[in-house]
């Protein structure tokens, strides 16, 4: 029976071989179609940045305006502000996030007792599960001028006057950094923790036998073995340095006008231009600027890592 099958296969030869891949290509059709629609069409759609968009005509038929939209965008101070905010916040997020997550992962690893470890790990991941909308409710519960916990309880106990948080921009850089850290450290911590527990246990045993202190073990075994993970995660964040968490900058400050100076990033700017101010020209120019520079940054960040430490490059 089996012999028959094999001889049959051989007889059919080439025809069978080329035909056998058809089901595979068929399987890939829905996914590839989706990527074309959701990802590739918008890439070509970037040409709107060079057009004066008329909704009735659509993207293709709208008239060209050359670099007009870009001139219009870069003449304002907005271009500078949104670039500064996007990059600076990201840099601070990367540094605070990495230091804090690595530190917590190391502490978590030093905890004795499986049950305790699991409980801590479970609890610090909770903020990651929650949508940015709910996070803005949490922030609102603390910072609302009339009924917030900070004004009504904390500052009242301290005998200090209330602050109208949503219109005082000087506090927001700190608030946004804290909220971002709160939301994301559990997630990063798990990644670093997974890297720590994959370290060869005999290394630690040898260190203990040699009388190495806890600090020495962390410095000489744990940190060096985390280097690869740190580089990879940092590289991924640096690659996205021209992008911001729209929810964090739009939703958490409640889209409050007086705060725009310190909360406006490229993503919020594009959104407001497109859907609130009906200023598609500037929005599409800012979007194009983001896509292009973002692309260049991803490629260069990877190229640099590739030169320094090839195995940590993403591609």
């Amino acid at each position: 029976m089996k012999e028959k099958m094999i001889s049959g296969k051989l007889k059919k030869g080439k025809v069978w071989k080329s035909k056998r891949f058809w089901p595979f290509y068929l399987m890939m059709v829905p996914g590839l179609l989706y990527l074309i629609i959701n990802n590739y069409l918008p890439m070509f759609g970037l040409i709107v940045a060079f057009k004066k968009v008329d909704y009735r005509l659509g993207i293709l038929k709208s008239p060209w305006v050359g670099l007009g939209n870009f001139e219009y965008l870069f003449k304002t101070s907005d271009a500078w502000i949104i670039t500064r905010n996007t990059i600076c916040y990201n840099l601070v997020f990367i540094v605070t996030g990495t230091v804090f997550s690595v530190a917590v992962a190391i502490l978590l690893n030093e905890i004795r007792g499986k049950w305790k470890k699991k409980t801590y790990q479970t609890l610090i991941l909770i903020p990651y599960l929650i949508s940015t909308v709910v996070i803005s409710y949490l922030v609102y519960a603390f910072l609302s001028a009339e009924s917030g916990f900070v004004n009504n309880t904390v500052l009242r106990v301290l005998g200090l006057p209330g602050v109208s948080w949503y219109s005082e921009k000087k506090y927001w850089p700190v608030i946004l950094v804290l909220v971002n850290l709160w939301k994301s450290f559990g997630y990063n911590c798990i990644i670093y923790y997974a890297a720590i527990i994959s370290i060869d246990g005999t290394l630690f045993e040898a260190a203990v036998v040699d009388g190495a202190s806890r600090w020495r073990r962390i410095r000489d075994i744990v940190l060096p073995s985390l280097k690869g993970t740190i580089i990879t995660l940092t590289l991924m964040s640096v690659g996205r340095i021209f992008y911001s968490d729209f929810g964090l900058f739009f939703q958490v400050p409640m889209n409050s006008g007086p705060l725009f100076d310190v909360t406006n990033t490229i993503d919020t700017y594009v959104y407001r231009g497109l859907l609130q101010l009906n200023d598609i020209g500037r929005a599409s120019a800012a979007g194009f600027y983001q896509s292009l520079i973002g692309f260049v940054i991803v490629l260069s960040a990877n190229a640099i890592v590739r030169k320094v430490e090839k195995e940590n490059a993403l591609f």
């Binding site: 590839l32 990527l35 629609i37 959701n38 990802n39 590739y40 069409l41 918008p42 890439m43 070509f44 759609g45 970037l46 709107v48 940045a49 968009v53 909704y55 659509g58 993207i59 993503d267 594009v270 959104y271 497109l274 859907l275 598609i280 929005a283 599409s284 979007g287 194009f288 983001q290 896509s291 973002g294 692309f295 991803v298 490629l299 591609f315």
Partner: peptide
């Protein structure tokens, strides 16, 4: 073809116009 979508994207404006128009 799949990987490239991780490196480059069109962003909100063209996506919005394509999905809605």
């Amino acid at each position: 073809f799949i990987f490239f979508t991780m490196l480059f994207n069109g962003g909100l404006v063209p996506s919005y116009m394509i999905w809605s128009n």
